[in-house]
Design a protein around this nucleic acid. Structure first.
Lengths: 136, 136
DNA sequence: TTGTTATTTTACCATTTCGTTACTTAACCA
DNA sequence: TGGTTAAGTAACGAAATGGTAAAATAACAA
């Protein structure tokens, strides 16, 4: 149903759908059967089953088994990873540009450790000019 | 290039690709041209251009203009929204089950305000049993 | 056994996504 | 003017996504 290999991509792509986020929101208040989850949605059961599989592959939910019910429940660990990734950018939406510059100096001082995902890299000698210097 | 309508879905789906996350990571240390961004990737320029369009549509980057260069720079606001959404689940990966129960009681006490995205709903009378009571 | 309820599986379809190659623009430079 | 560099567009293809209807399982209930 998908071929992604890295966990973070899997998590984010599972979250990139309002139906699936609604399912997680519902499961935040306790486990639920597929039928319960499907009721408020305007789509068929098989569609919901598919969304559940996506969530299950992303390890955002797990399933129990009660006779003919297969209740779903929330598993939040992958959300922690997503939160950790996003958090690294907090400074960019929160701090002043001066603080940002200071932060970038720190990054450059440490040189690159993490190869590509977040943080900063070694080889990029202090870029930062003045942002939208041309248009837009 | 995509037809999503809600901001959060757009943000998450933009983040659901390692190439695009690498681009954001690179831009965290300062603006860069398409050529610079494409250099470390194993893909052609048009492919990178497409990724940039996805990021631009998600408002995660903006473009400047310097003669024949169209530098990209990071815009972190959408990441804040994503972080806020994910944060609502922090308690699920952090707190004990007892605290969770207390939290859920609070949610039920408030009754439902936010219709579907996060938090809890009104109509779900205190579900929570004991999770994987059957198999798995 | 037969029936009912809950859920999944099996095609099937339309659309999107992610990559490519080839061509076109745009801005500079001599 | 012609040439080079930076970036975008067009056209294409393979694969994934998100939905459907119809059939198949699974577990219980009478």
């Amino acid at each position: 149903m998908q071929k992604q290999t890295d966990r973070l991509s899997n998590t984010f792509s599972a979250l990139a759908d309002p139906t699936r986020r609604a399912i997680l929101a519902r499961l935040a208040s306790g486990e639920a059967s597929v039928t319960e989850l499907a009721k408020p949605m305007k789509m068929t059961m098989p569609a919901v089953t598919k969304h559940l599989k996506v969530l299950e592959r992303a390890n955002l939910i797990r399933r129990g088994r009660h006779a003919q019910w297969r209740p779903c429940y929330l598993v939040a660990e992958p959300l922690k990873e997503a939160a950790d990734w996003v958090e690294q950018y907090r400074i960019f939406w929160e701090q002043s540009l001066d603080r940002l510059d200071a932060y970038l100096k720190v990054l450059q001082a440490q040189a690159g450790k993490d190869p590509s995902e977040p943080k900063a890299k070694s080889k990029n000698k202090s870029k930062r000019k003045k942002k939208a210097d041309g248009s837009n």
